[in-house]
Amino acid sequence: MLKQRPIILTNCRVIPKKTKSNLISTLRSSTDHGQSTGSNSSVVEDTEGDVGQIGKHISKGSVTINRDEYLHSHRELTHDYQQLKMKNNLLHRRFADYYKKRKLEHVLKPLENSADLEEKYQQKLFTYAELKDKEEKEIHDIKSKIQAVENQFKHNLENAEQKCDELIQLERSTGAGLIYSKTGKPMGDKTIERFLTLQRHKAEQAAQLCLRYIRVRNAVAELEGVIRKLETLGPGLHVAHFEQMYIDKQNYMNKIEEREDELIKNRTKCTEHNQILAHIREKMHHTDEVIDFTEGDLGDADLEFLKARERLGHAKGERDKLRWSLESERMKAGLLTRRDLLRDFQDATDEVVNLKERKSQLMNQITKIRHKLRESRRQYQFQPIADEELDNLS
């Protein structure tokens, strides 16, 4: 829904105001025309009032109004009003289409919280009026101060000019009685005036140079302030810091480039390692298949192992039985089952036999020796005591 806006009338025809003389002439012409035709006119006749009425002696003339002219102007204004109304509606539609194309439908919607907005607007107007009054007061104060400074400047300038004129008069009166040291003649008025004009020109040049120096000094101060402002980018931030940070940035950029080169190398290594890992994965898949087959074989081997373990248990039982029977047989057999003891017994018996043989040999030798001794005794006829001693010795 479009919000109804006030209709603005443009290019309206306005009837100009007529002067008093033109109005009187038109009224007279209209009265003459009304008396002759007697149509489209209204006549106001003089009527006498009561005796006590104010202005009873003042006569009233007849006034006629031309209705055709006003009707014609009314029709023209009505036609213009209708045309402008149609134009206004057409422009509203164009505005609506334009806002819809620009996606600005919120402009066509009625404002929400218009009372609050109006109140805020009034408050802003009040604040604007206060600021305006404050500004006017400040401007008035500044103008008054400027006027006071100008008056002070004029007063000081007049005093300075007066002092300067007095100084010039004093110099002129002093120079009138001076005498040249070279010529010994008194100084003329023209010479004094020439020196005074030269002094005045020098003073003017000095004043101009002082003014120029002050302007240049102020300009230098302003430029220094501008340079300081340019050097200070913010609170606690200067151009030197910015340059240092820029240098640090360049260094960090170089380091980043080096790191990027290292990253590129690492990426190439990663691609190579990924290829190696892919190859290893393929091998792993193959080994997984082999492991699956071997696990099947391992299951079969486990079954065979369990069967072999059972057979081993039975074999161990039989072995234990045989061991126990062998132990009993060994206990029954005695030394026959122990070879080391049998070997020792055989060695002992062999040694006993050898010792017996040696004993027999020694006995034979002893008998032989006895026989020889007896024979020797017989030969040498020893006493029988010696034989007994020999027997004892043997």
Score class of each variant (00 low, 15 high):
191 T>K: 10
191 T>L: 13
191 T>H: 12
191 T>N: 10
192 I>M: 05
193 E>R: 01
193 E>T: 03
193 E>V: 04
194 R>D: 11
194 R>A: 07
195 F>K: 01
196 L>Q: 00
196 L>P: 01
197 T>Q: 02
198 L>P: 01
198 L>R: 12
199 Q>K: 09
199 Q>M: 07
200 R>Q: 07
202 K>V: 08
203 A>H: 05
204 E>W: 03
205 Q>D: 14
205 Q>K: 14
206 A>N: 12
206 A>K: 09
206 A>V: 10
207 A>I: 14
208 Q>A: 15
208 Q>L: 13
208 Q>K: 10
208 Q>S: 10
208 Q>P: 01
208 Q>M: 09
209 L>A: 13
209 L>F: 07
210 C>G: 14
211 L>G: 14
211 L>N: 15
211 L>H: 15
213 Y>F: 13
213 Y>M: 11
214 I>N: 14
215 R>Y: 07
215 R>C: 02
215 R>N: 13
215 R>H: 15
216 V>M: 12
216 V>S: 14
217 R>C: 14
218 N>Y: 09
221 A>K: 12
221 A>H: 11
221 A>P: 07
221 A>G: 11
221 A>V: 12
222 E>Y: 12
222 E>D: 14
222 E>R: 15
223 L>R: 09
223 L>C: 05
223 L>P: 00
223 L>M: 08
223 L>F: 06
224 E>G: 03
225 G>A: 12
225 G>C: 01
226 V>M: 14
227 I>K: 13
227 I>Q: 13
228 R>W: 08
230 L>E: 11
230 L>K: 11
230 L>F: 05
231 E>T: 07
232 T>Q: 15
232 T>N: 13
233 L>E: 05
233 L>P: 02
233 L>K: 04
233 L>M: 03
234 G>L: 04
234 G>N: 02
234 G>A: 05
235 P>L: 01
237 L>I: 09
237 L>A: 11
237 L>H: 11
237 L>D: 08
238 H>T: 07
238 H>A: 05
240 A>H: 04
240 A>T: 07
241 H>F: 10
241 H>A: 08
242 F>W: 04
242 F>R: 01
242 F>C: 01
242 F>H: 06
243 E>C: 04
243 E>W: 00
243 E>K: 05
243 E>I: 00
243 E>H: 02
244 Q>P: 00
245 M>H: 07
245 M>R: 06
246 Y>G: 09
246 Y>W: 10
247 I>G: 06
248 D>K: 06
248 D>A: 04
248 D>I: 02
249 K>E: 07
249 K>Q: 07
250 Q>T: 04
251 N>E: 09
251 N>L: 11
251 N>I: 04
252 Y>E: 12
